[in-house]
């Protein structure tokens, strides 16, 4: 069944981060596989349904050996979703895509005994342990004290971005939190990109080419003309971008 959309709705583009397990093979590969088999024997299904990234950076291997490695892992039900540290030219359509710029997270403990290796069914109560209860921590923020020039991107998915200066036409700010520009915002500002609908954009003078909050965006053409050149804050109400003047 196909629904005909009568009104043009913008496509939502969102960033999302996932936690993946990173496997770092060591040479000689056979020994490493033996240890992996040992782990798998102790905890059946440990790798099942977990996103796995293979980190081969620094390993003196070639393309054929990499393919062999991926195949050998596949026979052990370890499915690789991405490869880190391989030459991009190696990764044709037969191999998982390249992953870069990963940020380290806490180590994941391999289960010690079979009993602990819980089958996938009780995954439902796991998230509780993943998120520490009510941990109060200062939200990270990024301070930019130089003007952001055309062609430059400031990308900070962790939190707020403050720019003391202007953001030029052709420059972009991408923030997981809110964006504050103490100058003229002429480029693009994308706030709340990690799914934060409460994020806002503030600027001393609005001349933006594009603004977006949590995936909803507005181009310069769609913005109210009387807000141009004024001090403005922009936020999200439902799935509508709203703007108002400041002070």
């Amino acid at each position: 069944m196909t629904n005909v959309l009568t009104q043009a709705r913008p496509i939502r583009l969102k960033g999302r981060s996932f936690l993946a397990l990173v496997l770092t093979p060591e040479l000689p590969f056979e020994d490493w596989v033996a240890r992996l088999d040992d782990l798998a024997a102790r905890s059946a299904g440990f790798f099942l349904r977990r996103p796995i990234v293979l980190d081969v950076s620094g390993l003196p291997i070639d393309r054929a050996q990499l393919r062999e490695m991926v195949d050998m892992l596949a026979t052990r039900n370890v499915r690789i979703m991405g490869i880190e540290g391989a030459r991009p030219s190696w990764l044709d359509s037969g191999l998982p895509p390249a992953l870069t710029d990963g940020r380290p997270a806490s180590d994941i403990e391999a289960p010690a005994t079979q009993a602990e290796a819980a089958p996938a069914e009780d995954e439902a109560d796991e998230p509780a342990t993943d998120q520490p209860a009510h941990e109060v921590r200062g939200a990270p923020s990024l301070m930019v004290t130089q003007p952001v020039r055309s062609g430059q991107s400031v990308i900070f998915p962790e939190g707020d971005v403050t720019v003391v200066g202007s953001v030029a036409s052709g420059a972009e700010i991408v923030a997981g939190g809110s964006i504050h520009v103490y100058g003229t915002l002429r480029g693009r500002a994308m706030a709340g990109t990690m799914g934060n609908a409460a994020a806002r954009i503030f600027c001393r003078k609005l001349e933006a080419e594009l603004i977006a909050i949590d995936g909803f965006y507005k181009t310069a053409e769609d913005m109210e003309p009387d807000l141009r050149g004024r001090a403005v804050q922009i936020w999200l109400e439902g799935d509508k971008i709203v703007a108002g003047t400041l002070g």
């Binding site: 130089q146 020039r149 055309s150 062609g151 430059q152 030029a168 036409s169 052709g170 420059a171």
Partner: peptide, 16 residues
Amino acid sequence: EVSSVRDSDRIIGLLD
């Protein structure tokens, strides 16, 4: 004029 100014801004970014 605007195109020259934007290109200059880009160049300043590279200079930095």
